[in-house]
Computed example of a mutant assay.
Amino acid sequence: MSVSPVADPTVGNLATPVNSSYFTKAFLNALPIYRPSLSPNRRGLEIGMTHGYLLYGPFAVCGPLRNSDYASTAGLLASIGLVSILTVCLSIYGTAGNGPKVQPADATIDNPPADLFTKQGWSEFGSGFWLGGCGGAAFAWFLVSATPLLYLAKIAGGVAPVS
């Protein structure tokens, strides 16, 4: 195997033992953004759920209302606010210029999804991201809010007191 110059030196498609190993390729190709046979809306939904769920904790624990009774609600609202800002950024990226560019196949990603890299696909991705992000933050808020109730149910012998 000989090394030859590439046609476009800005592409950066150099296969290394790290980015072309079986584990790396399997891991990256299993992510929702590259998983085959998913619609752009479903890709956005899965990625948004993860972001909303993970953003809730830092806002609730480290936010300015962390020592008040409203810390969990403030974390929920801050997470939804940031997900909304990120969705606006996705929308701006998708509509600016010619829209998102199709990523060519490289040493790591075998078959990037072409339907995502259109203005319509990117718009569906953004709407799924917003819905999933708000749902993920709400699910995290519910888990934190329901934890004391679950603890009381365990103390009461499996039956929560009715008030």
Rank of each mutant, 00 (worst) to 15 (best):
S2R: 04
P5R: 13
A156E: 09
L31Q: 12
A60I: 03
G132K: 08
A105T: 11
S84D: 03
P58C: 09
G128Q: 04
L38Q: 07
A78W: 13
Y70V: 05
S4R: 11
L86Y: 07
P32F: 13
G57A: 14
N98W: 07
F142G: 06
K119G: 04
Y34V: 05
T24F: 06
V11G: 07
V159A: 12
S20M: 02
V18I: 14
F139A: 09
F142L: 12
A107T: 08
S163G: 13
N41C: 04
I92D: 03
H51V: 15
M49R: 11
L86K: 01
I109K: 02
R35H: 08
P64H: 08
Y56L: 06
G126S: 14
T118W: 03
R42H: 13
W141R: 03
D106T: 06
S72Y: 15
L38D: 02
F27H: 01
Y34R: 12
G99H: 07
L38K: 02
S84C: 06
D69N: 08
P17G: 10
L90R: 08
G52R: 03
G44Y: 09
A137Q: 07
W141Y: 13
T24Y: 05
A156Y: 11
N19G: 01
V88T: 07
A74Y: 15
C134L: 07
L77E: 01
Y22P: 00
T24C: 03
G97K: 04
L76H: 11
S79V: 06
F117Y: 12
L149D: 10
V159F: 13
D8F: 08
A107G: 05
Y56K: 03
P100M: 12
A30G: 05
P5D: 13
V11Y: 15
L86W: 05
T10W: 12
A30N: 10
Y34N: 14
P161T: 10
N98L: 07
F59K: 01
R42C: 10
T108N: 01
P161Y: 11
L45T: 08
P112H: 09
A26S: 13
T147Y: 15
L149F: 15
Y70S: 04
V88E: 02
Y56H: 10
W122I: 06
K101P: 02
S68A: 04
F27V: 10
E124R: 15
A160W: 15
V6Y: 14
T95K: 11
A26D: 10
D115G: 01
T95N: 12
D106P: 05
V83E: 01
T50C: 11
A78Q: 11
F27G: 00
